[in-house]
Design a protein around this nucleic acid. Sequence first.
DNA 1: TTGTACGCGTTATCAT
DNA 2: ATGATAACGCGTACAA
Lengths: 341, 341
Amino acid sequence: MSAAVPTILDVAARAGVSKSVVSRVLTGAPGVASATRERVQAAATELGYVANAMAQGMVARRTHTLGAFVRDAATPFYGHLLTALQERASAVGYRVVTATGSGTFPVSEERRALETLVSLRVEGLVVCSGALPVEDVLPLAARVPTVVAGRPERSPALSSVYCDEHGGGRALAEHVHALGHRRVVVLTLEPTTSLTLSPRSHAMAARLRELGVHVTQLRAEDHRDARLDGVGEVVESALAERATCLMTASDRYAVAALEALRARGLSAPEDLSVTGYDGIGDLAGPLLGLTSWRQPLDVVGALAVEEVTAAIDARAADAEVVTRHRAVDGSLLVGRTAGRP
Amino acid sequence: MSAAVPTILDVAARAGVSKSVVSRVLTGAPGVASATRERVQAAATELGYVANAMAQGMVARRTHTLGAFVRDAATPFYGHLLTALQERASAVGYRVVTATGSGTFPVSEERRALETLVSLRVEGLVVCSGALPVEDVLPLAARVPTVVAGRPERSPALSSVYCDEHGGGRALAEHVHALGHRRVVVLTLEPTTSLTLSPRSHAMAARLRELGVHVTQLRAEDHRDARLDGVGEVVESALAERATCLMTASDRYAVAALEALRARGLSAPEDLSVTGYDGIGDLAGPLLGLTSWRQPLDVVGALAVEEVTAAIDARAADAEVVTRHRAVDGSLLVGRTAGRP
DNA sequence: TTGTACGCGTTATCAT
DNA sequence: ATGATAACGCGTACAA
């Protein structure tokens, strides 16, 4: 139960060589007698030696580490994004250190968390937060390659990868139209409420209108949040208007609508078709059978890592770092909650 | 757009002092003329100076960092746990670096991720993984204070904080009994399938029997996973036996059961009461109204941080480090899916 | 009040 | 093939 963490010197002493040799063996450098090499290996494992990444980073000026900041790992959206980042990063030889806030964190804390990442001298930064203003990210982006992931962002000073909200909303609307719906209620949100939910919901309404569908927009802000009763009013309105489909901006809203229907002894899609949006997590499984739009967070994560690493390489090669904004397409999730009218 | 990261020397040069003075100012040490202090502050912010945590850690031999390892941040369970850890840790002055695997990671990768954390010289380790064998954690635990969070663990060499599966299962069973159910089907799992789902499900069945309830155990292993059709068979059996309630080991199973009911034109709790377990994430919201058992992951996270930091302090004070195993109680989530028979 | 010098653990360069 | 030594950026005794 040695409290003291072994250093390279301990390994060297145990193997009866100098620390230089140990370093060479451990980094896989050539020019060490195979007998010596084995002695060193043995000594290292016996001691349970793990190299001090900080000391390595100091001299190597490389940490092989990406910093990921996610607003709240407890939400499926960020959780999946985080996992995708992790997976891709380790595939291309980077480790990931994560700083996560929580829903209750003030933005000032998010800023501090970002600084933590920078203080760790991560080589690249992936910022996933719908709340953190880009102004807070910019100064860091000037120093370390940065990509904002998961939200639309168009500052030319950094790269971004996000889901195509507009395209997704339109495509889902087309699906609803193709099913034959001609009277549809769309639950819309304003940009001030959400930078992601707003564009997708307005895109749905706009596309439906283009297709000649009778559309009624109901603003979520006029009702009580995503609570059951708030959406209940929306469902009531939809039924009163003789609409055959209700399009919502997220799976949570959709589930709330389904419950509101059930509370009235009705169900989807028989009495009213219902669509969601997100396609992530438990709500999107085959269990509920939601008709929705799946955001490819694995792709977003992978591309985000791709962008940072490219920027890192470019900077290392002293080449010009080009920033890009990439919108990725989602895919239709055909479920059982939306059918023919 | 300076690619070069400013060091303490840059700040010193800009302020026209030596780096010692800068260090004192930034660490808040006394004995600096206030005029000088301000000059240094100004220089630091102008340069956007962020201290190199690695260099600091090397000399201070303290990193003020906790390492959290979570098996898969994409699942609500681990996501919430991670957030809880983060929240508590930053409240007590520690930063958290996280390494997360993903559902598809082999255990060898988990081991590597843990080493990454150790190489970063975190002062304490919180391990959240139902999959990683304790043997892989033990060697690290000997070196850095470690606590296993979120799964029952009784190795005396480290501390653990987890949910009381046994007590939860019993309490939920008592609720079902109190509702008046006398014929109940319990969907059980074996320990080889899951270290958490198994004990809770068996505790439910045992407690019900103690209370004189007629219990039929159906092994999940005998059916096709948690898929809709697999649980469909279970629901069929329950109805055929004229059971009034179906207890499952997780909210996912419960939702599957609800859907199976719906597919047959039936519903809960009218035709069959259904209970879940977990109480985390979207499935547990008021939307679905699941009757379930809520695992207090925020408490688990907070206690886990409390345990590690206590161990860190003890070790620093050269006192004896006591390991503890703490089971925390959950709470009943009264929903709409279980009613009187 | 301020500056000098040393060491933390590691890699890389240069001798040997 | 191996060993000594200089950095890396920072905190901190100690000297001025």
